[in-house]
Design a binder for these strands. Sequence first.
DNA 1: CGGGACGCCTGTGAGC
DNA 2: TGCTCACAGGCGTCCC
Length: 280
Amino acid sequence: MPELPEVEVTRRGIAAPLLGARIASARLGKPLRWPLGLEVDALRGLQIGAITRRGKYLWLPLQGDRAAGGLLMHLGMSGSLGLHAPGSAQALAAPGIHDHFELVTSAGVLRLNDPRRFGAVVWSPAIDALPAAQLLGRLGPEPFDAALTPERFHAGLALRRAPVKAVLLSGSVIVGAGNIYACEALFLAGIHPALRADRISRPRATRLLAALRLVLGRALELGGSTLRDFSDVHGASGAYQAQAGVYGREGQACRACGTAVRRIVQLQRSTFFCGVCQRR
DNA sequence: CGGGACGCCTGTGAGC
DNA sequence: TGCTCACAGGCGTCCC
């Protein structure tokens, strides 16, 4: 479900209510990607600090009398976080079969629902200590980091011979664009997804960076509602098909030129593009 | 090291 | 209606 905008929307939805909340109890469901790395009951009594995001990871700092650290969370492919107000029907309801992590706090019940269980919740003594540092260490710059100039972005692409779509998905030159937004940004920038990253000129790299920011920023404004089955806390989903330029539109007319949108497979993932509008 | 395949899981929709 | 198959928003690990 989540690419960067959806993770950021999630963060914005839970950060303020959970700031300063105290954990009354915690519970694990079926195993996620990795073990928690801590006895789940050890979370009891810890106080939640300011929740941050790096790439598609969320960091929940936790402070207690004897323990300090935090939880590094990832929503994987199908994860979502729900925060249910104390005393609400949802908070009182038993966890669903796909609720695999739960924090009962003074500010409500936080539940990670993740059918495919590619997501993760991992204890780390600090965000810059193992194991968090190991996972975050390979991430490239944030898309809206002002330090990521067109020059630097272009320089990053120039080091890679793989297809530009693969480089975007790798997250080493820029984080946050998943399969959908990578396709959409390449379409907006008029760049063929199979073009080698190091063959992209400075002007085209500049356009691609702008397109990535546009696509991710727009999704953020729309509250992450551009994904197929993403729903916010109010259950609003919306506008997916209306937003997509190429993603999921194989065989349909390109909105710019009318040519049939094509689908190819790269890294075992679908890539959608317009063979006319997007040049090598 | 870079590049690409694999595997982790469950759910859903299309086609028969 | 029920089965099978392809495919789904990610990413760490492993092998070349």
